[in-house]
Computed example of a mutant assay.
Amino acid sequence: MTADVEMKEVQALSNSVSSAAVPSTLQHLKEIASLIETGAQAKEVRRIVRAVRLTMMLRRKLRASVISAFLGHVLTPGSEVLAKLSSYLPKPDEHEMDVDTAASAVQGPAKHSIPELEIYCYLLVLIFLIDQKRYDEAKVCSSASIARLRNVNRRAVDVIAARLYFYYSFTYELTNNLAEIRGTLLALHRMATLRRDELGQETLLNLLLRNYLHYNLYDQAEKLRSKAPRFEAHSNQQFCRYLFYLGKIRTIQLEYTDAKESLLQAARKAPVAARGFRIQCNKWAVIVRLLLGCADWRFGAI
């Protein structure tokens, strides 16, 4: 009997030690915040890229309690941005609190939050709202993030801003209000061009093309595409999207050869994990193949 009790105590102790050795989601977010601060100070965009990538890996573990504790850690207490972002979060339940949430309250929050961290906090809250399917609140949050971005002109923000542009359009698409933001996207594209934000230009151009094609406005999409400034692609994902939209435009314009080349290139360059995107490319490629009437162009070559 005594041996059984001792075994249970040893097992409970080992479990507690092993769980304490694994960093919590809040600790991971703090490390990401440090990475963003270092990248902003050293003007190293690759650190910001890594921070965004790590955030996407954590998105399934995000909870309201964790995000609330993180906001209190990195944002200035009593600031407007802290109050605004906290209003989008539901009140966390006690059972949702992480182990180190109480410890984070003891540590003093940042006295002055840098713009990169503020924009990142908008992104974090927005991702949480979308994953929780609270689309109306996500739409309001995304609009607030765009308003904040207009007043920030720092190259370290460009990577985070590109993600916010995408989710801004995505939330309006989810709520069937995509036409409402077309003028805003055009203004943001002009702003990105003036600021020489090439990643922002790529992202916003694709969002505008998607906006036009969503409503079958192919002539306006081609007019915008032809007048858009030329630059070297910085994101393979954005370049693949651009080729896909170009292939759709060329198909409607009866330029089947150019459409075929664009769709084939988009399918080849797309990441293996982007299965849905590759399927869409293949569907449009089949349409072009049928229109061309090329019997020797096999579907397996796509």
Rank of each mutant, 00 (worst) to 15 (best):
S79G: 05
A21P: 04
V81Y: 04
K133A: 12
G200M: 06
A267R: 07
A274P: 02
V272S: 08
P115R: 08
R155E: 10
A51P: 10
L54R: 15
D197T: 02
E180D: 15
S145N: 06
I279C: 03
N177I: 00
A267I: 04
P92E: 07
I249K: 01
R60V: 00
C121T: 09
L194V: 09
F231A: 07
R150D: 11
A161M: 01
H112C: 04
H28S: 15
A161H: 03
Y165F: 15
R150G: 06
V159K: 10
F231Q: 12
A259L: 03
S226F: 02
V106E: 15
V45E: 12
D93W: 08
S16E: 14
A259H: 03
Q107I: 13
G293R: 06
I36F: 02
Q265I: 00
A156S: 15
A187D: 14
A33P: 11
C240R: 01
I67A: 01
T257W: 05
L123G: 07
K269T: 01
A33K: 07
K223H: 10
T203D: 00
Q27I: 12
Q201A: 06
Q11N: 11
K84T: 13
S19D: 14
L149R: 05
S145H: 06
V22Y: 00
R268K: 14
G293K: 08
L29V: 09
A12C: 09
A83F: 09
I119D: 08
R63F: 00
V106I: 14
E202Q: 13
R59N: 10
K269M: 03
R134N: 14
G200A: 08
T25M: 00
F299A: 02
E261N: 04
